[in-house]
Design a binder for these strands. Structure first.
Length: 275
DNA sequence: AACCGCGCCTGTTCGC
DNA sequence: TGCGAACAGGCGCGGT
């Protein structure tokens, strides 16, 4: 589920709740998630103070004051529950010196928890090859054009490639391409520079609007606070197969929003306005 | 080298 | 209503 806007929202919630707090207990209930969680994680965290958080793509990093960081990825079904009760599929739990409690709940176990040295954060295997942050200065039309150059894969699949740009998932790839008017089937290496410039702007705008809305809530996804994000109401194409496209309702040649499968993932688009 | 398809898991939704 | 099938926001791997 969680793509960049949802991860950013979750991270802000964790930051407000945990930064500055001392961890008084940590328990690993189930180490066999996507990768085996290092068994020393609870011992390393217990007694440590939380210094802060940062996000890299869909990953969160929590720094503590003993030189270690925790790498967190929510996978498809992961949630961070603040001050909740023990829940089903709660694989990891922290308690803080102010009585706070944070549970990592992940039914499908596609999530990741890992322990690493803070100084080595960006050298972690899962982060080392990651592309630029789409909301940062390092992401620009020339950079995206260089990453797409020569690529024979459809642009939709290329945007899901975290080496090209970090943090975009299935929902925001469809949404950004709709807003940029680019056919998701177009080969990544064959998009003109002006259209790449527009795509960069629309990726940024889409992600920023989604963050402002607290992300998109689908099924059981909630912010750590328990609030629902509401960006799903602003989706233009995702999950809207068969509906009229808002750009061309009823116009000749508009067959409504289509759903296709690309690289095993669903893609939604308007065949009239996306070229 | 680059790309596609599969598998990992569980829960929910869909269609008969 | 009940049941199995299909599908779900991600990502790494193996095969081509």
């Amino acid at each position: 589920m969680p793509e960049l806007p949802e991860v950013e929202t979750v991270m802000r919630g964790l930051d407000g709740h945990l930064t500055g707090r001392r961890i008084v207990s940590a328990r690993l209930n189930r180490p066999d998630i996507r990768f085996v969680v290092p068994p020393e994680l609870p011992a390393v965290l217990t007694g440590a103070k939380v210094l802060g958080f940062r996000r890299r793509g869909k990953f969160m990093l929590m720094r503590v004051d003993n030189g270690f960081s925790v790498l967190i990825h929510l996978g498809m079904s992961g949630r961070m529950l603040l001050d909740g009760m023990p829940a089903l599929h709660e694989h990891f739990v922290l308690e803080t010196d102010d009585g706070g409690r944070v549970g990592f709940v992940d039914p499908r176990r596609f999530g990741v928890l890992d322990l690493l040295r803070t100084a080595d954060e960006d050298r972690h295997k899962l982060l080392a090859a990651m592309g630029p942050e789409p909301l940062g200065n390092a992401f620009s039309a020339p950079v995206l054009a260089a990453a797409l150059k020569g690529k024979a894969t459809p642009i939709k699949a290329a945007l899901l490639d975290q080496r090209v740009v970090a943090g975009i998932g299935n929902i925001y790839a469809s949404e950004a391409l709709f807003r940029a008017g680019i056919d998701p089937r177009r080969l990544a290496g064959k998009i003109s520079r002006p259209r790449i410039e527009l795509l960069v702007r629309e990726i940024r705008a889409t992600l920023l609007e989604a963050i402002a809305a607290g992300g998109s809530s689908l099924r059981d996804y909630v912010q750590p606070s328990g609030e629902l994000g509401y960006f799903q109401h602003a989706w233009k194409v995702y999950g809207r197969a068969g509906e009229a496209c808002e750009r061309c309702p009823g116009l000749p040649g508009c067959a409504g929003i289509k759903s296709i499968t690309q690289a095993g993932r669903s893609t939604f688009y308007c065949a009239r306005t996306q070229r």
